[in-house]
Each structure stands twice: as C-alpha cells, then as structure tokens.
C-alpha cells in the first residue's frame, strides 16, 4: 500500500491510497484535476505529467528514454518531470508528493 499526494494546479492537496496499477490510473479513477490519461497509459499523450517533489525523486527513479523524449517537447517540463502512467504503484512510492503539471 502506498499513500500518494497530488497537488493540483489550483493548489488543492489530494492524498490517495493505492496498491497496484499506475499512478495515472489512481489519479484518473479519483478525478484528480489535470491528470487526464488520454492514451490509457501507453506513453503517447503526456496528459499525465507531474513534477515529483525533489526529495522524492529517488523513490520514483529515472524516466525511460521513450518517456524522456515525450517530456523533452513539453513546455512545462523540468528535471523533476514524470509521466505518471509510467510510475507503477508499490510500497516504494509510499509518501511521495506529486505536483500536477500545467498544460497548454
């Protein structure tokens, strides 16, 4: 079980608990504003973009090259950016804080 906190672009804090599946799915199932997950999690749409709190980057690990290539052309991306459909929920993610990224 992992507790995951989303901070929306309106600065609303939403904490959710999940056991499996992707972080994107957890967010979509709970209507977290700004996480749309249009492509269902295959890394094609970038509508699941979050910024990982700097102190938690270690927990999420690094983005794959395919994910990095998607983020590279996102105007709101920075070094803490992840597509959260690529984050599998497991105990390791417990306690992470994710800032939902702006979109165009």
């Amino acid at each position: 079980m992992a507790k995951i906190t989303f901070i929306t672009t309106d600065n609303e804090t939403i904490t959710l608990e999940g056991t499996s599946g992707s972080v994107m799915q957890l967010a979509v199932d709970n209507n977290v504003p700004g996480i749309d997950g249009d492509c269902g999690g295959v890394c094609s749409c970038a509508t699941c973009h979050v910024h990982v709190a700097p102190e938690h980057v270690e927990k999420t690990g690094e983005a794959s090259e395919i994910e990095q290539d998607m983020l590279e052309l996102d105007d709101h991306a920075n070094e803490y950016s992840r597509l959260c459909c690529q984050l599998e929920i497991n105990d390791h993610l417990d306690g992470i804080v994710l800032q939902v990224a702006e979109s165009d």
Binding site: D38, V42, S44, C45, S64, M70, L73, D104
Partner: peptide, 24 residues
C-alpha cells in the same frame, strides 16, 4: 498488449486530435 506505445496517430503537441476521445 504493447505497453510502451508513444505513437503519433493522433498528432502531437498543439493540434493533437480533438476528436481522439470520441475515436478512442
């Protein structure tokens, strides 16, 4: 069941397909 599928069939960036939700 391809897991990583960064396709561009619905375009990319500014003009990505507005009808994609309906089409999907």
């Amino acid at each position: 069941d391809r897991k990583l599928n960064p396709h561009v069939s619905f375009g990319f960036s500014t003009h990505n397909c507005l009808g994609a939700t309906h089409a999907r």
